[in-house]
Each structure stands twice: as C-alpha cells, then as structure tokens.
Design a protein around this nucleic acid. Structure first.
Lengths: 199, 199, 199, 199
DNA sequence: TATGAATGAGCTTTCATTCAT
DNA sequence: CATGAATGAAAGCTCATTCAT
C-alpha cells in the first residue's frame, strides 16, 4: 500500500465515521486527500470497494486476535480474558473503524454483506468456543455459552459508542472492569437465583 | 394517527431497517404504502422528519420502561431485573426499530442528533442510577456502576443484531439468561481476581 | 364580486408583488385568505386566470383615465397635464398592482400576453395622441411626439419602484414636479442646443 | 471566463428574458448550450447564482459609465448628457440584460436582493449628484434634483421595453431626442406655469 | 360552500463514474 | 499520474389542479 492509498483509507474511515458512508461523497474523499475526484480512481476501484476493504480489514484484525488467543496456553478462562483484552484494546485504538463496520456494512452489495457476515460469525463462534473450552476445563461456569458469547460481544462492541481517549478510563481499565463484571457478576456473594427471575 | 400514517411509519421502519435510511427513497416508501410520492407529503413533513419521529418513538418506549422501573418497589437489584426484562422484551418485539435507531440516527440533522443523544443519555443514566441504588441498598456489588451500566446496555442492545423470533430462545429466556450471567458471572464459585487480570 | 373574491384579489396583488407570481403558491394564497387550497377554486379558475384578471384591471383603470382626459376640454397641454396627474395618482394609490402588471405579465400565456400588450399599446398611443394634439394646437412643442410619450410613460411608470406613502413627496407633489420638469426642462432660459449634442 | 461559460451566460440572458427566470428550467439552459443538465454545474454554482452574476454584471456596466462621466470634465450639464448617452447606448446594446435585471432581481435571495438594491442606489445617487453639480455650476435649473434624477432614470430605463434594433430610431437618436426633451421641455418658449398646475 | 386526499408533472441539485488529454 | 469535462441516473421535494364527500 502506497502512502497515498493509506491516506485515502484513513480519510475514508474518518469521513464514513463522521458523516456516514452514503453521506460521504467521492468529492469529500478527494478533498480530504488533496486530489481531484477522477484521480482517486487510480487508487480505488470505487466507493463501495473502498468500504469493503475497510470492513474486511476491521474484521481481519479481530480474527488475528482470536487466532492468537486460541493458540495461547492456559485455561479457557485465561484465553477468554486475553481475547477480551485484545478486543477492547483494538476497539479503543480503532473505534472509528468499528463504527464504520457495524454501522455501514449494510450499505455493501449482498455478496459483500454475506462475506462480512461470514467473517463476523467466525469471530463470534470462536469466542463462544473459548467459553465452551472454559466450561469443559472447569475454569468457567455458564448455562448457555452461546448466549454468554453474544452478551460479551455486545458489551465490548458497544464500547465504540462511548469510548473517548481523553475519558476517565483507559482501554485497559475498561477491559479489566468489564472482565471483572463478567466473571463475578453484580450479585453479592451468595444469592438466591430464583427470586429475581420472577419479574 | 390515522391508519395511513401508521402504515407509513411501519413501512418506514421496515425499509430503513432493510435498506438503510439513505438507500430508501421516498419512492420506495410510496410504493410500500400504495401512494404516489407526492401524496406521502400529506402525512410526513419530509424524509428526515419521518426518521426523527421513528427515532423519538423508539427512545420514548424505553424511557417509559425506565420510568416504570424507577417507581416500582423493591431493591435496586429487583428494579434492575425488571428494567432489563422490559428492555429485552421491547427490543425483541421491535428489533427493526432499534436497528434504525442505532444505525441511522447519525443521518439526522445536528440538532435532531443532539436531541436523540440527550434522550439516550437520559436512559443510560437512569439505568446507571438503578445500579447505584442496588449498590447502596446492598442488593448489588459492583466496582464501577457507570461502566457496569454501559456493559449491560451494550449486551442487551446487541440483541437486535441476532434475535430472530423463530430462534432457539424466547425473549424472556434471553432476558433470564443474560440477567443470570450479569448477576452471577462466568467464574465458578470463589475466584482469585488477581490472576486473570494479568493478561 | 363577493367579499371573498375581493379578499382573494387583494391578497394576490400583495403576494404577487412581494414574492412574485411564480414564487407565490396557491397554498400561499389560500393561507392569506384563510381557506384551503381546494376551496380557492370555487372563486378562481386558476392561478393564471387570477393574474390575468389583475392585469386587465390594472390597465383598465389607466384606460379610464385616458378616456376621461381625452373627452376633457382645453388645450392638448391641459389634457396631458390632467392625464399625467391621474396616472401618477393611480400609480401611487395602487403601486403594487402596477408592479405586478409590469413585472409579471410575461408569465401569462401567449394569447393573454398579446391582450395585455394590445391594451397597453392603446394607452401609449392615446398618450401620444394627446401630445400630438398639443403640438397641433400650439400648446406643446416637441420634435418627436411618439418618443416624448415613451419618455413620459417611462418616467411616471418608474414611480412604482420608488414611491413610498410615507415618503418626502405626496403623489400630487410628485406629479407636479414631474410635469414641471417635462414642460420646461432642465436647461436655464435660452440654451445652445448644438453643443451638448456632441458627446 | 471560458467560452462555455460565456455561452451559458448569454443563453441565460436570452432565456431569462424570453421566458422569465422561474419559467426557465435548468434543462432549458442545458439544451440551449448543448450540454446535459448535470454538466452545467461545472460552470455554475446554481441557477440563482447565475442570475446573481448576470445582475451584478448588468449594474457594473452602468456603474462604469457613471464613474467615467463623473471624472469627465465640463459643466454638470455636459456630464449629464454624456452619462445619458452612455446609459441609452448600453441599454440598447444589452436590452435583454436590463430586462432581466429589472424584472427578475426580486427572484434573488434577500441578501442578494439587498446587494442589487445597494448597487442600484449608488447609480441613482450618482446620477442625482451630476444633476446637482449642474445646478450648482449654473448649467442646469431644476427645482428637485432627486426627483429629476428619478424621472430621467425611469424614462431611459423604460427604453428596454420598446427598443428594437430594427426600429425607426437608432440608439443615439433616442438618446439625443430624450436629452433634448429633458433639457428644453415640451412647453413652447414662454409659459405660465401656474395654470397647468391646477388640474 | 368547503375540504382532505390524491396525483402527474416537474423542479433543482447531487451523485459515482468514465474518458480523452 | 493527474485532471477537467461530461454524463445518465436518481434523489427529495413542490406544484397547480381535481374530485368525492
């Protein structure tokens, strides 16, 4: 990737994040990198292709984290903790990119959407697999691992909507706080599970 | 609200959800309700106004749930459980609407976005307040209530991305499962918190 | 003409004058008279017909003035003075109407424009005729009566662009001042005509 | 200004003059210059901007004439004669442009209208100033110079409504005829001013 | 007499993309 | 590599008018 290409990608992330994919015109992109509209087409195939690449890159990073966690040693719980840390760090470092991924993927063509969906599902299943591992090796206890994985994913992905670099908590503090919550819950030590189930 | 207006609103929710706000043309909306484009303008002020109304309605429902939970009796934990149940039920019943709210709100004009942001913040703070209540009355134990509220919100809002009415779990089962997870965590009985913090 | 019709006409004059014919919507007219758009059509045949009637009325007034002047006695100069007084008074009393006539007549259909053109020409020729009368009876001296009539017409019609009821001069003062100017000119007593002709 | 821009401007003048600003669509303009609608927008910012430029240009020409007359030597009367000649020539050469200026300026946005009004007022005051100069140096005699300036302006601006290049009088003949009229008036040599004042 | 609903035609403008230079 | 010019398509919206009630 040339320098120009990198500039185009990062401008695209920022613009798509700020204005949205559809509201960002090719002219906006050209202005942001100091080129004419037509010149952009030496570097990109088209506006949608640009979004697709961004989207793919975003997921690819998370899949790398997943792979690293999967091959790392220790109990399932330890691997889950490592994965969540990596996930939160990546989100905080690239929150614009995740915003674009989650908000604009539906602007892609059906086949591209399908690809994104497949890659996302792979990550989700990997995460669930780590939870299952923890259950099997006794380091985790959970009634519905798939549901737990979805809850975890939602909680951490939501971070991109509120995280601010200058905020109260650093990425690692956010990760630690969430992991603590997920592992030990909100209830004080021994609790009667029955009562709160009835609304 | 006349019958036509209701038809327009529900068509808008479905179309905005399926194709996205920008990719849905006024012509699409007109076709969906069997009117000419121009006739739509007897019922709506414009496309963006339609989105704004939808968005407001979506948040208003959740704010009603919040108010109901706040005035309900019992411990903070009990109120939190009630609120989460209501939240999950509402999301599952109107998942398209939440999708539109979360995905398309940025297409609104700056003042409208600000309004949405303000209303959303009110809900978030209300949720956090319930958690704080629980901590104060001893029914909940949590280090960072604000962070916990964000985690809860993320986990339950994420549901709109995967919930299918015909799926394995009913809305109440989803709510019960998530609440169980949030209250008791993934870790088996007593746990040493220190170790897992180091990645 | 019913009261409603009169209200519609006067609202139309005001709106056409303020916003222009094309920029005035039927909705604007309806709002101005407190009716619904559709109800207006009980009183008017259509928007253009409304403009045509206004236009015809405007010229008709001036043609009445012309007829009155023509049958009045005295020298041509006296009749010219009377006509100009009447013209200025009418313009000042109805400056909005003249604005609409002069500015918006071209929005009419070709046949309607032709009618307006014909009526206007009749007035112009009548005015020129009075000038010719004055030349023939010795009360006026002018090289090119037709040109003089056009100059007079331009000067007095221009009044609608600057006259304000609250202004420095009353309509009669304006008329008197202009007539004085037209009759005696700007040059001091005897003047050498040759020099200023060469630029 | 490129050739295309010039073609667009002149087409706009002709079309706005023939059909009026509102009745001229961007499609009409595009057809007139042999481009697609969208291509026009490489040369103009928008339809109203086009009108504004035309309008500004129209006044600018007259203001140049004014400046030239003001710095020219001789008596006030001589300068007035020069200015009127220039004015008439310009109107006859560009009568379409003046038609657009006078008839369509009200279609501009309020700020643009204000600009046009200001520039027009500058010309009017300049003309009145020349008349005042003539009064002060004794070359002109007039009771109300401001009123006289308005009368002159009306008479000459009216020309755009009747001038035809193939007509009986050339622009210079029109100018000479009008100037003669304005300087010496219609009344034969000695005249009793009182009588004609009473209607 | 009054109107809510409806509409076909048209508007100005923006868009992503192509191509000759 | 870069770009000015060009374009087909489509966008959101407004319009004057009609008509059943």
């Amino acid at each position: 990737v040339s320098q120009r290409e990198a500039a185009i990608y990062s401008a695209a992330v920022r613009l798509f994040r700020d204005k949205g994919y559809h509201a960002t015109s090719v002219q906006d992109l050209a202005d942001a990198v100091g080129l004419q509209k037509a010149s952009l087409y030496h570097y990109i195939r088209g506006k949608e292709d640009l979004l697709l690449r961004l989207t793919r890159d975003a997921i690819a990073g998370h899949l790398e984290d997943l792979a690293a966690a999967e091959v790392s040693g220790g109990t399932g719980r330890q691997r889950l903790v490592r994965l969540l840390f990596a996930h939160v760090r990546r989100i905080c470092a690239n929150s614009d990119l995740l915003t674009v991924l989650l908000r604009e993927a539906h602007a892609l063509s059906p086949p591209a959407q399908e690809e994104v969906r497949r890659l996302s599902a792979r990550y989700q299943h990997g995460l669930a697999g780590v939870v299952v591992d923890g259950v099997q090796d006794g380091s985790l206890t959970v009634a519905d691992p798939a549901l737990a994985a979805l809850a975890l994913l939602g909680a951490v992905n939501w971070i991109h909507r509120w995280y601010r670099p200058e905020g109260r908590l650093s990425p690692d503090e956010i990760a630690a706080g969430m992991i603590d919550l997920f592992l030990h819950g909100l209830a004080p030590a021994p609790s009667a599970r029955e009562e709160e189930m009835q609304e």
